[in-house]
Amino acid sequence: MSNWQDISRNGLWRQNPGLVQLLGLCPVLAISNNVVNALALGLATTLVTALSGTAVASVRKLVPHEIRNPIFIMIIAALVSCVDLAMNAWLHELYLVLGIFIPLITTNCIVMARAEAFAARNGVADAALDGLMMGLGLTGVLVVLGGLRELLGKGTLLAGADKLFGEAGHAMVLQLAPANYQFLLALLPPGAFLGLGLLIAGKNMLDARQRRIAAAAANPVTLPARQP
């Protein structure tokens, strides 16, 4: 249980792929212009990382060391193809928006890095949890960055939710600014870089604060006794 807690903390916070490892920056910066696109790509990546970790851990003792990377890539590519076909069939409008970034999950550094660094060295359950948590950690970054950019750029949240949630998504859209409002910088790539930089800075500040609290708790200051 303790090991699973460490895996979860690493994926969601301590080794977050979007804020700490800085992997997969191309889709993070390109797709995070609104919440719906970010959430859809994040969930697709999470599904692939979890399933690929499970598959790689299952065959790790059967694959010769010399050809492990091509085998891992083939496993990941097969899973991405299934996700790509499923999204094309059931979420076609969203699939058209995400475009090439769904097939490019195959070459996403997060997926391959976890397969090589963790799944190839650990059991099936641990590898599956690691892939799930790393994917959810990336999804969280994508959603927060997408929400920040969408809110500043268009004054909305969850615009286009019907592409992901169907007809019920129309009721989820929040219009928080006039319909003609637009702040173009937030919607363009420079806005993505600035937003991601702010998120990284915020995480670093929280980590530094936590370290100060831990250091203060470990080394309490003893006040001198008051003289009578």
Rank of each mutant, 00 (worst) to 15 (best):
A77S: 10
T49K: 03
K154R: 15
D6E: 14
T54S: 12
G140K: 06
Q227I: 14
G135W: 05
A214Y: 05
L19T: 01
A44Y: 04
A57I: 05
D130K: 02
I7G: 01
A86G: 09
L79C: 09
G11W: 00
E167T: 13
L158C: 04
N180Q: 15
F101V: 03
S32Y: 03
V144N: 05
I71G: 11
L104K: 05
P17N: 08
L132V: 01
G131E: 06
A125M: 11
Y181N: 09
V63Q: 14
V20N: 06
C82Y: 11
G53F: 10
T107W: 00
T106Y: 07
I71N: 12
D126E: 15
R211A: 15
L174K: 05
V111W: 02
A117T: 05
L25R: 01
T222V: 15
F72R: 04
M134H: 08
G18N: 04
A214P: 03
L12N: 06
H92F: 10
L194N: 05
N108T: 04
T45V: 12
N204Y: 05
L98R: 05
L51M: 10
P27V: 02
A125K: 02
V28H: 01
S2L: 15
V48S: 03
T222P: 08
L25W: 00
A30M: 05
P103F: 00
A30L: 01
Q5K: 01
N3K: 10
L223N: 12
I71L: 12
A38K: 03
I105W: 02
F72S: 07
S32D: 00
M1H: 14
G99F: 07
V173A: 11
D126H: 08
N33H: 09
N219C: 09
V59F: 14
A128S: 11
P178V: 11
P228A: 14
G42E: 05
M112R: 00
R211K: 13
G160E: 03
G123L: 02
E93T: 10
R209N: 09
K163I: 02
L98Y: 00
A86H: 03
F101E: 06
I110C: 08
G53M: 14
T156V: 11
Q182I: 11
A216Y: 08
K203Q: 13
L47H: 03
V28S: 09
E93G: 12
K163H: 12
